[in-house]
Write a protein that binds this DNA or RNA. Structure first.
Lengths: 220, 220
DNA sequence: ACACAACCGGAGTCCTGGCCTCCACTTGGA
DNA sequence: TCCAAGTGGAGGCCAGGACTCCGGTTGTGT
């Protein structure tokens, strides 16, 4: 108690705090939660000390940073729930959620990773869960989604598609939509024809590039 | 020239060499290519020096180790090509290939990763490629696979499913088959009903466990 | 049985990279 | 003006991987 807003930061300090938050957001988004605080400091044009003074540990930085990101996914879920077509509703949520995760690698790691040690994130997840249950349930009772799948299947699917996105992110950042399209077609109980592909397929060269990029992204 | 089998190793040396190869195989399979030679030495019950004497660098160890693994995939491909039903042929290859990759994480990394610096692996890949083209082509002209997908799409799918497998590997090592089943249903140009799921879905607890495992597998 | 080249283990060096502390210097603002 | 608040970044600490070296051991040809 009496810890928050003890007293306003000096103006330069506040400015630095914001800079750190901003760059951390960027770096986490494009390289995942693994980036070091030193690196964030360097990119923010600020000393390491400054970072550590403001955020005693990485957890706090992450929590501060991802709260509203989580809220975005929650919003996507509730928005979708309001759509009248049960299939469109589910698809719209899955799509929006994937878009957010593709744009922000850190968010994805937070969503999929260890639950402990991020109370707020855990709480966010638990707000989202029932909505997903509702979305899936509605689609299934409407008969537009096969009923032998459950929510964990959707999670797995999201994770899988997310990795495909990761693989091609440098070369064809939208290619994951093809994978998703295939998966969505696979969720239907029956259908006459494939849904049209949202983006063109990868060509030979893009594959080679993706392989190279991916290879050296995991240091070796 | 005159380098191979210069002279047979002393018997104990040969025994150690084999031990190193064996344990390296195991460790690469379950933890990926990232494991250090020191660790391999420790698990093999052998000094680090012995490892480095026998395999001047990791590349050579890896090449020696994965040549026949690659051959297995190639065999899966050619075997499948001989099957009469074009759909069954494609499915059988994809399934076998995934099984191998799930069993051996190192193999997967090699298949998907950097092409350079592993000439033999690259060559193996190039033997497999045309067979996959044939498998897919045959299925498409037979009208059992939608024709707006190409080989890179299959790669992406494999990568994606592989990650789902990675995610649940400790808790439900067969769960990836559900994802694959959905994806396969998504590949058909049309169908009346979903194919039956090969394994039961994850329950709540398994999801939580997977999240935890996955979280701490990427150190943090 | 003996000698010795081949082989062994693993302590030790070097290096990279993360986390975090400390303190001499700057600066905002009462 | 003055000083508490704030700053930067050198440097300590530690983990862990790659690789070397050498005193000691062992297989083997004779």
């Amino acid at each position: 108690m009496a810890t928050t807003a003890e007293r306003p930061l000096r103006r330069d300090a506040e400015r630095n705090r914001q800079r750190i938050l901003d760059t951390a957001g960027l770096l986490f988004a494009e390289r995942g939660l693994g980036v070091s605080l030193d690196e964030i400091a360097r990119h923010a044009g600020v000393g390491v000390g400054t970072v550590y003074r403001r955020f005693p540990d990485k957890e706090q930085l992450i929590d501060a940073l991802f709260e509203h990101r989580l809220a975005e996914i929650l919003a996507a879920a509730t928005d979708s729930l309001e759509m009248s077509d049960p299939w469109e509703a589910l698809v719209s949520f899955l799509e929006r959620s994937m878009e957010l995760q593709v744009k922000d690698r850190g968010l994805k790691e937070l969503l999929l990773g260890t639950s402990t040690a991020h109370a707020r994130i855990e709480q966010g997840r638990q707000q989202i869960q029932p909505i997903v249950v509702a979305l899936l349930g509605r689609a299934q009772t409407a008969g537009v989604v096969r009923d032998d799948i459950n929510v964990p299947d959707l999670m797995l699917l999201q994770h899988a598609i997310g990795e495909a996105a990761e693989y091609t992110r440098e070369v064809a950042p939208e290619a994951w939509r093809r994978v998703m399209s295939i998966a969505l077609d696979g969720l239907r109980p029956d259908r006459r024809r494939p849904s049209p592909m949202p983006v063109p397929p990868l060509d030979e060269e893009q594959v080679v590039c993706s392989m190279r990029e991916w290879g050296l992204r995991r240091r070796r």
